[in-house]
């Protein structure tokens, strides 16, 4: 078994127009920058893929990664919990111009919807958002005297994630808080692509230390010394 691919460009070559794409990362940590930029390169060369639905906690920061994807006009919709930051101009401009749709989801509901999709659970009940405008139109049910809101699973065609170590079977570890959404996105997407900072031989990752078992990963590409989103933004890097 060998799930490795030679380059980020090869890894993202099959992502279609209109695809729903989960992208790992929270704030400036964990974003698979090289995979996202490979997608932008493909769009600039071929005009595809466009009209993507992107799922992430945020809506891009600065002028790299998801923010650059949005700035190129490749994103039709964002599903996230916190699209506003000091540095989210790319999204805010498109949003205010009516050029991008937003589905706002409480952060824990976002995580659980993704986890549920990965676990094959079509819906679940949570107290989160009960009585608020984010629960409007949703089914409410009482359990043990307390009201809960029904939320549905959130699936994706593709997940793009960043991991630390990976082997050719797809087993992954992560680096500190860069883990965030990556393990559950890997479970929820039909096709999960991981960029890993170091590719190692099967067996080199202690089975006790594997965070994402390879069954959830379809393709890996090694990106040694990957870019770090926060560091890029502090250097005011603009992609492309």
């Amino acid at each position: 078994m060998d799930k490795t691919l030679p380059s980020p460009a090869d890894a993202v070559a099959g992502i279609a127009d209109g695809a729903t794409v989960m992208v790992g990362g929270f704030g400036g940590s964990g974003a698979p920058i090289e995979l996202i930029h490979a997608l932008i390169d493909r769009f600039l060369a071929t005009g595809s893929p466009g009209n993507l639905t992107v799922i992430n906690n945020n809506a891009g920061n600065g002028q790299v990664g998801i923010a650059a994807l949005i700035a190129q006009g490749m994103v039709g919709k964002i599903i996230c919990s916190y699209p506003r930051s000091t540095n989210s101009r790319a999204f805010i401009e498109k949003y205010q111009a009516g050029e991008i749709a937003l589905e706002l989801v409480p952060q824990g509901t976002l995580a659980e919807r993704i986890r549920a999709a990965g676990a094959g659970i079509p819906a679940f009940f949570t107290p989160t958002a009960y009585g608020t405008e984010l629960a409007e139109g949703k089914q409410i049910q009482e359990f043990e005297g307390r009201p809960y809101v029904m939320e549905r699973w959130l699936k994706a065609d593709v997940a793009l994630i960043k991991a630390e170590l990976g082997d050719r079977m797809g087993n992954l570890t992560y680096r500190m808080t860069a883990r965030n959404f990556a393990p559950i996105m890997a479970m929820a997407a039909a096709h999960t692509i991981a960029q890993v900072s170091r590719l190692v031989a099967p067996g080199e990752i202690d089975p006790e230390a594997v965070i994402t078992p390879g069954i959830f990963v379809d393709a890996l590409v090694e990106v040694a010394e990957p870019a770090q989103e926060e560091a890029l933004n502090r250097a005011e890097v603009h992609y492309p």
């Binding site: 919990s81 916190y82 699209p83 506003r84 999204f91 805010i92 949003y95 205010q96 937003l102 706002l104 989801v105 409480p106 952060q107 824990g108 509901t109 949570t126 107290p127 989160t128 958002a129 009960y130 608020t132 984010l134």
Partner: peptide, 15 residues
């Protein structure tokens, strides 16, 4: 008005 953003507040208040 403005761009809505909720983060984890709605989760924390019930947890």
């Amino acid at each position: 008005t403005g761009v809505p953003a909720v983060g984890g507040a709605m989760d924390l208040v019930h947890g």
